[in-house]
Design a binder for these strands. Structure first.
Lengths: 335, 335
DNA sequence: ATGAAAGCGCTAACAC
DNA sequence: GTGTTAGCGCTTTCAT
């Protein structure tokens, strides 16, 4: 930067200004500086800038696993919105472990991230406290809470379970099974399911827990075990589409007709749900929009980057801290 | 950090040493410092550390789109390997645009990333030159090159096209179509296909280009257009499984029997390929392993982080700069 | 509109 | 083994 300043015959501050707030510099000087930057191929050190200004223009995000297409979609949406505002994405995988998440949060805070996006609302108490104390913008996603760390953009997993229960009940099913990851949000879906089923006097739900990440085979084996335990099962709800497709496979292998002998409902509406045969009835959640909305919530609280295309809407309506983006049950052939 | 030093009754350097190289500090002092850190809830500012040491422990990675499950898998593998060595992942999406990629590269370099992972070997000349000049470790993935910027971990897209051609030819197909994204790697697959087909005297390949990212519908429409142009088509190769599934759909809709009247081959072997009906014959590529291997290549060139579980293998066999991780044609029902 | 001085929080080198 | 002295490359005052 000193080189650029010398080359342009100005002080270093002026170069800094050209980069961060061009309007504060006379057009002639600005041009000279920009020419010098060009000539020298100067790339500013953003870390040094962060250190001096204590704003990093980095947002940290943590997902359980990127190889779960639904979370990848959320990150895609997030990255898209952030990039448009000059922010970058530091990404971590917790591998479905709150301890892992806590470690990543610390690492990210050490990097002075300007904001954080977390998956779910279940975190170690120390994480909640720390983030509350630091008061940086935080968005939790893929779930809802009436007491978020800061903000939340999600949907009610519990309500999805209820919706599936209602749907199955309406179609006359009463003996119902559940295959789901041994993980918080899946359990909430299960709870919603059980609650409604119990209220209607249906027999207890048969549950098969598999450990994440879910593979197609887990779905197949889950169904096999469920059938071994309770041959009279009429329907199953799988906590994601991958498991559901596995269950569909196992049905075909055993000659169990879907949906006549066994109704199958999935979760998240991946491309695969519409593609498999029979097409999978599933719960569609706004994976991509979850990330986009989280990004918007953050940006509304962060100063816009110089040169970004995001107008300063300081006086726009303040964003709600809790955003329920909803879900939708998509009836197809499998249930 | 000054606070911690005072609290522990030592100098700031000592605190720094406890954090970055504990063995250089007497156990008693170390314990005192750690206690102070604990008591004060001190979180070191890694940016300041990067500035002082000019090593950031951040690796930048650029993929076309995270919502393409195959790239998400690669990033998953990469993040997994890097996390184990104390490195973090700064992620960007180029949206299939070399200009976008160039911008991200600059942004990442500004962040002083220690290394870079790029998708593909096609980049703006300025990007190649800049990275060569800077001489930071760079791995290109999802393709091969005999003149990589630095290192490459991939497979030959061209060879996958040849393999598909051979397979189709062996099954007696000669009138062949191709549906593929208008993007470099797809075009290479197409080239391999055409080359082998031409050599065997088959008629020219009918090509439908769609713009990325691929959606199921693009595959369906692609097939429809292909059929309109050349009703006698016997087989098609789709440059990814999503397009292939779309084509499968369109066949079913039109009552075209697969594989009897139309053979369909996909690419990348997503879960969906095994799940759809008829099951999709496809080319399996080591998506996850691509990322893992890229990570290992980088780490072999970067000093291991303190407290990482990666032993210092300075004297291990040096890693080859070009890694061909291969591919595999998976015959299923659709061709 | 531009510049000078001070310092962000840390690590590198060198003493002791 | 531990401390001292200098910066890393920028942005912030505050002055001009």
């Amino acid at each position: 930067m000193a080189d650029v300043a010398r080359e342009a015959g100005v002080a270093r501050v002026t170069v800094s200004r050209v980069l961060s707030d061009p309007d504060k510099v006379k057009p002639a000087t600005r041009a000279a500086v920009q020419a010098a930057i060009e000539r020298l191929g100067y790339v500013p050190n953003l870390n040094a800038g962060s250190l001096a200004s204590s704003r990093s223009r980095i947002v940290g995000a943590i997902v359980p696993m990127l190889s779960n297409a639904w979370f990848a979609d959320t990150m895609d949406g997030l990255a898209e919105v952030l990039a448009g505002a000059g922010y970058q994405l530091l990404l971590g995988q917790s591998r479905y472990d709150e301890g892992g998440e806590a470690g990543l949060v610390d690492a990210f805070l050490g990097r002075q991230v300007d904001a954080l996006v977390l998956t779910g609302v279940g975190h170690q108490p120390s994480v909640r406290e720390k983030l509350r104390r630091l008061a940086i913008p935080v968005v939790e996603t893929w779930d809802l809470s009436d007491d978020p760390i800061d903000m939340v953009a999600g949907f009610s997993n519990h309500a999805t379970g209820q919706a599936v229960a209602d749907y199955l009940l309406a179609r006359g099913h009463r003996r119902i099974g559940f295959i789901g990851a041994d993980e918080r949000r899946s359990q909430q879906r299960l709870q919603g399911l059980c609650e409604r089923l119990a209220a209607s006097g249906a027999p207890e739900v048969q549950v098969e827990r598999v450990k994440p990440p879910s593979a197609i085979d887990d779905g197949a084996q889950g169904l096999a075990r469920l059938l071994a335990r309770e041959p009279g099962l009429q329907a199953i709800f799988c906590s994601n589409d991958i498991l559901a497709v596995g269950a569909l496979f196992e049905c075909r292998r055993r000659g169990v007709a879907v949906p006549q002998q066994m109704a199958v409902v999935g979760f998240s509406d991946l491309a695969i749900a519409a593609a498999c045969v029979p097409a999978l009835t599933t719960v569609r959640v706004p994976s991509r929009e979850l990330g986009r909305h989280a990004g918007r919530m953050l940006l509304a609280r962060l100063r816009p980057a110089p040169g970004s295309d995001t107008p300063d809407q300081a006086d726009a309506a303040p964003m709600a801290r809790i955003a329920d983006l909803g879900f939708q049950l998509i009836p197809r052939e499998s249930a």
